[in-house]
Design a protein around this nucleic acid. Structure first.
Length: 320
DNA sequence: AAACTAGTCAACCGCTAGTCA
DNA sequence: GTGACTAGCGGTTGACTAGTT
């Protein structure tokens, strides 16, 4: 199928910035005839523009319900939250911000927010949102049946009966991938109040130099992101990240271009397990992510999990 | 003052999905 | 089923501006 190009320069169609006169022509035409019929609109409206250009101009700048000017703090919070949820789906994000266009949000993200987050040492996982990943896996499971119904039952029963704990799961994942985990940090995570719940989670501050950890409790709606500053210290991010309804699946990692989402360390089944058992525990997931991403050369004081099986079994038993 | 650099953002491009004849 | 068309999307470009050398 050969498509006729929408905008053909040889037809003498104008490109580039719109003049006030052109804007006025477009506005008055749309006001009289309504939106739509963009292909034929330019000719009818007396514009030497392609329909696509007219639609874009109207949708992004001339529509009366468009909100112009600086983004408010609330809007910025929403963008960050929605971006974590949707990734670079600007149209989806824009639907959550009435009066703002996808183009405007995209620009604002690229020129303001992204830069600021990177400065703080926080890089959003943008390759694929967690919710998308989970959805993919669920779909795959339905189609391929790679995980059988009895597997599911088995897993569910295990979770129910033993209460697949944070420690157990962390230990399991770490062992599986041969990653080293700072036991003291893990103990802090676990020791700060037992199994983590959606109502009380644990914020862990990690000092990479002294290898000491401290913990504090907080509600999941107030501190969903953690940043890693220049010294390698993890600190709670400001309360600007507070939309709990959409942050449940958030995961951010520290500022290293090689770092990728935690999901990439896991196969589908493991990821599902993590999703099922830990998704409500964002802070824990972040810690887990960080540990799994530790550079092997930067593990002063870290103990290989598999060499300390006894200690970790104790932790496991705590939750059993 | 001129040249250069970096940041911003409106507009464009290429593509896909949906609809309709 | 096919082709033409529309609408919409995300990535990219490039003109403009402000700041710096």
């Amino acid at each position: 199928m050969v498509r006729t190009p929408c905008c053909r320069a040889e037809l003498g169609l104008k490109k580039g910035a719109w003049t006030p006169e052109e804007d006025q022509k477009l506005i008055s035409y749309v006001n009289r005839h309504g939106e739509g019929g963009w292909r034929t609109l330019p000719e009818k409206a007396g514009l030497k523009r392609c329909g696509k250009s007219c639609r874009l101009r109207w949708a992004n700048y001339l529509r009366p319900d468009i909100k112009r000017g600086e983004f408010t703090e609330d809007e910025e919070r929403s963008i960050i939250s929605l971006h974590a949820l949707h990734g670079n789906k600007w149209a989806a994000i824009a639907r959550g911000l009435p009066g703002r266009t996808d183009n405007e949000i995209k620009n604002y993200w690229n020129t303001h927010i992204k830069k600021r987050l990177i400065k703080k040492g926080v890089v959003p996982v943008t390759d694929k949102s967690i919710s998308e990943k989970v959805q993919d896996i669920r779909e795959k499971r339905n189609v391929n049946q790679t995980i059988t119904a009895s597997d599911d039952l088995d897993h569910n029963e295990k979770v129910k009966k033993s209460g697949l704990s944070s420690a157990r799961f962390l230990n399991r994942v770490a062992n599986r991938f041969g990653k080293r985990i700072n036991q003291s940090v893990l103990s802090e995570i676990i020791g700060s109040g037992g199994p983590l719940t959606s109502h009380t989670t644990t914020s862990v501050t990690v000092d990479s130099e002294s290898d000491k950890s401290t913990s504090s409790s907080f509600t999941p709606t107030s501190n969903l992101l953690m940043t890693i500053n220049g010294n390698g210290n993890a600190t709670s991010s400001p309360s600007t990240f507070s939309d709990s309804s959409v942050n449940d699946h958030l995961m951010y990692c520290d500022n290293n271009e090689d770092n990728i989402g935690f999901s990439t360390f896991l196969n589908d089944k493991d990821f599902m397990m993590l999703e099922d058992s830990c998704v409500e525990n964002t802070e824990f997931m972040k810690e887990l992510t960080r540990f799994l991403q530790e550079d092997e050369t930067d593990n002063v004081g870290m103990m290989p999990v598999y060499e300390h099986q006894d200690s970790f079994e104790e932790i496991d038993n705590y939750f059993a």
